[in-house]
Design a protein around this nucleic acid. Structure first.
Length: 845
DNA sequence: AACTCATGCAACCGCTCACGT
DNA sequence: TACGTGAGCGGTTGCATGAGT
């Protein structure tokens, strides 16, 4: 209240002698007078109906919640009105409360009971003419809605009650009404209710002390962000009144719709379902505190909207309507309502987590167990950290993703460890300090994890971030992260044994097991050395990029997509398909290189293939393709295009553990090629795995590749080798090159890709995926198979980045024309520039 | 003020794994 | 060992929201 006036009414009212005041007080709080609670009993009926209240203990908790709600929401009005019981103040308070009460039922009840109280008080307390005057001036004016709390405060003030007594009286009548309802509903007997009421009165006094003598705070909630801020204020006992000015304005104007679409947030806070008072009251006082009250308001709004959109769900209606249930009802889908949340919270409180399929049976919630589990895990869990990610968390996520890829759940657990100072963290009004011992989750390795974030949250964040960076043409990982990941990988290699960087990640362990021989394909460095980051692979981890793209692929051309493991699985084989078995001419013999691989793998690293397949068992005659060889990538099989495409690859990038050993084995042994999943390229074949099939629809894996391949091949076919079969004109590298961290430019090119291309990605994709194409004359040069220390391998990457700083890497042709490129790599003839030019629309010969 | 569009989030779906019988 | 069930993970989708026009 602005300016606490002296009680005007005190001047005019007949001096309340102590005894007359007492009689008046007692009569005022007597249940004969309207006290608001009768209108809806604070949702007790609905709570019982919804089985939120099952016994007197539940009821006791519920009453405390009701009192907490009353104290925080209504006491400020009682206080302000009692302190300044004049007409203007009353009108002001009344309007504000009218805007504050977001629940239509509550609002109507408040108005109903308030107007009744005013009528009765004006008739009873005739010694206070102000009451009658104020009432008559307001009746029919439309200015005052006669909300109960302000009326009660006005009456108290005019009677001469001090503000503290007024507020305590209001709490008392609230509590009394709740007990009356419980008695009426046979939840407790009269004696039990009396005993219970006496016990609760102690808690009521505590709450009264917490909330009394507070003034509501005007707070213009402009949008959801403001709402969040407001919720914080409420939670911290700073603000008490949800008072959207615009809402008042539009109400004053008698409009039924908000004046501004932006006001929708405010004006639609009008849940009108009978169960919502329950939700408000119940949730407010649970551990979630008042911030959840606002959340309930939001959800209540949504409830209204959804109730329109989900009317086909009788279960939803029943839950929302508080009507229970008989018969079999279909499970509800879609967004969760506040009522459902309340039920689920209650269920978990009583039964603990787990056994989600029994939630429906025990709670009457018409949700499948899976939905319940997700709702609890992602939203209702008390140990969730809400709000946007902090910079520290964001950095942590980036690093984690660099290390483990799309392992959202594990990342979530790790990010939880970020909570810096547990003593300072309050989650849903629960201080972590108090609960860390219980809530700390012990991971498999024994370390303590504090899952404050959900996997879904992190996943969404990452996807959003990826899109954003992609739009901006920025690298996915900061350079330092790449370098760190590289160093980690290098350290792991230096260990000379299985890397155990992440003991919890079987995938990581597997991938790390498989050290890629450091074989240099100079010309491939064009692709990788030039391109600092892979923007094309949104979900490629930096470590895998570096491990495979820098540490290995640069040297050997073993390039891996690092998308989903399943995708990798398929794409990795895609990389190495498309070559017939008659590779000859300048191309190194397959067995020769295979021997090299074998030697490197089993010799240099001192262990055999961990994948259960024996490299020595390769049926080379049937393969004819160097796994991982750029002979394949180069498309040098031009001389032999008639052979059947052969599917063969080393497992350069491991699939997830969901691949069984046998699967991998069968894959690795080049079993019969499947009928091509790809409609375009018969040379792109998939291993006979379910994963491959399921991934066949991946929009950004093979689909793009196929489009590029098709386009490239078509162009080349018509421009260069009219009579040539497609197989020899082009050999796909697949997405593997993307996995190199050196491919940012390629990715950027994708952003500026040839718009004339159906895929829109042709230039970059071709560049990144198909550049190692050359004439047969340079094959040996291209292969130039020799071990090279990884540092040396990595150098061009740095060098390339320096060049890129001076080069417009948004354009592949600019890059092609760069001195760095021409000096270092152009002569390698590794780059089949005509293909690129074709896709770029150029006219290279 | 109305409309469109990009964005972010919540929820769902499909799949796999773990575990018990 | 096979099977069923519960639980978890990762990808996708639909919708609300806010910004821009």
């Amino acid at each position: 209240m602005e300016g606490k006036k002296e009680i005007d009414g005190a001047k005019e009212k007949p001096a309340s002698t102590s005894f007359s005041l007492h009689w008046s007080q007692w009569q005022l709080i007597d249940s004969i007078l309207p006290t608001g609670g009768f209108a809806h009993s604070f949702g007790i009926e609905a709570a019982i109906q919804a089985r939120v209240i099952l016994n007197p203990e539940d009821f006791q908790t519920y009453v405390i919640h009701v009192l907490e709600n009353t104290g925080s929401l209504l006491l400020p009005y009682v206080y302000s009105a009692a302190m300044c019981p004049d007409l203007d103040n009353w009108r002001k308070l009344d309007r504000m409360l009218d805007a504050t009460l977001t629940n239509e039922v509550s609002r109507k009840a408040s108005v109903s009971q308030g107007s009744a109280l005013m009528r009765v008080a004006a008739a009873v307390f005739t010694e206070i003419p102000s009451l009658k005057i104020m009432r008559e001036m307001s009746l029919g004016s439309g200015i005052v809605a006669f909300h109960h709390a302000p009326v009660f405060g006005i009456v108290c003030g005019l009677l001469g009650m001090d503000s503290e007594t007024s507020q305590r009286a209001y709490m008392f009548i609230t509590m009394r009404d709740a007990f009356s309802a419980a008695t009426r509903l046979n939840l407790v007997g009269p004696l039990g209710a009396a005993v219970l009421q006496h016990q609760v009165s102690i808690a009521a006094e505590t709450m009264l002390k917490r909330w009394m003598n507070r003034e509501h705070t005007h707070f213009h909630i402009k949008n959801r962000n403001r709402l969040v801020t407001y919720c914080e204020l409420v939670k911290n006992s700073v603000a008490f009144c949800f008072c959207p000015k615009r809402l008042l304005k539009y109400k004053e104007n008698g409009k039924n719709q908000p004046e501004d679409s932006k006001e929708a947030v405010e004006t639609t806070f009008r849940p009108c379902h009978p169960l919502l008072p329950l939700v408000h009251s119940f949730l407010v006082a649970t551990a979630r505190g008042h911030i959840h009250e606002m959340s309930s308001m939001m959800k209540g709004t949504e409830d209204n909207k959804r109730s329109k959109g989900h009317q086909d769900s009788p279960a939803a209606d029943e839950v929302n309507g508080g009507g229970m249930v008989g018969g079999i009802t279909p499970l509800k889908k879609g967004p969760w309502t506040s009522a459902e949340d309340a039920i689920l919270i209650d269920y978990v409180k009583k039964h603990g987590e787990g056994n989600w399929n029994s939630v429906q049976k025990h709670s009457g919630l018409f949700r499948c167990g899976k939905s319940c589990r997700l709702r609890w895990a992602n939203h209702l869990r008390p140990d969730l950290k809400k709000g946007s990610f902090t910079p520290e968390e964001e950095n942590r996520i980036i690093e984690l993703h660099a290390n483990m890829g799309n392992k959202w759940a594990r990342m979530a657990a790790e990010v939880g460890n970020l909570i810096p100072d547990l003593k300072c963290v309050r989650i849903h009004n629960v201080v972590w300090e108090e609960e860390i011992g219980r809530r700390g989750e012990i991971g498999s390795s024994g370390e303590q994890k504090l899952p404050g974030r959900t996997d879904n949250e992190i996943k969404n964040y990452w996807n959003t971030r990826t899109k954003r960076l992609q739009r901006a043409g920025l690298p996915l990982y900061p350079p330092e992260v790449c370098l760190r990941a590289y160093k980690m990988n290098k350290d792991g290699q230096n260990m000379g044994k299985l890397q155990t960087g992440d003991a919890h990640d079987p995938d990581m362990m597997l991938t790390d097991h498989f050290k890629i021989p450091e074989v240099e394909f100079k010309t491939l460095a064009l692709n990788q050395g030039v391109l600092p980051y892979s923007m094309g692979l949104f979900d490629a981890s930096a470590s895998s990029m570096l491990k495979q793209g820098v540490g290995s692929s640069y040297g050997q051309g073993l390039v891996f997509p690092t998308i989903h493991p399943a995708k990798r699985f398929r794409e990795s084989q895609t990389i190495f398909t498309g070559l017939d078995g008659s590779v000859s001419g300048g191309i190194p013999e397959f067995d020769q290189l295979t021997d090299y691989h074998r030697g490197k793998i089993t010799g240099d690293f001192g262990f055999s293939s961990p994948y259960g397949f024996d490299l020595s068992n390769y049926d080379q005659s049937s393969c004819g393709v160097l796994p991982g060889s750029h002979a394949i990538l180069n498309g040098n099989s031009s001389s032999s295009s008639s052979s059947e495409p052969i599917y063969r690859a080393t497992k350069l990038e491991l699939p997830s553990l969901q691949y069984s050993e046998t699967q991998q084995d069968s894959w690795g042994t080049a079993a019969s090629p499947l009928p091509s999943l790809e409609s375009v390229d018969t040379f792109i074949q998939s291993p006979p795995t379910k994963e491959a099939k399921s991934d066949g629809q991946s929009p950004r894996s093979s689909g793009l590749l196929e489009a590029v391949l098709y386009e490239s091949r078509t162009l080349k076919h018509y421009k260069k080798c009219p009579g040539h079969q497609t197989s020899d004109a082009f050999v796909p590298i697949g997405c593997g090159v993307h996995s190199s961290p050196l491919n940012a430019c390629a990715a950027e090119w994708e952003l500026h890709a040839d718009l004339n291309s159906p895929s829109g990605h042709s230039a970059s994709s071709l560049f990144s995926e198909c550049t190692p194409i050359s004439g047969s004359s340079s094959d040996e040069q291209a292969y130039n198979v020799k071990p090279e220390p990884i540092e040396q391998v990595f150098l061009p990457y740095v060098e390339a980045r320096e060049v890129l700083n001076q080069t417009d890497c948004n354009r592949p042709d600019a890059l092609l024309g760069s001195t760095w490129f021409s000096n270092k790599y152009h002569n390698d003839q590794f780059f089949q520039t005509d293909d690129v030019a074709a896709l770029l629309g150029g006219d290279q010969p």
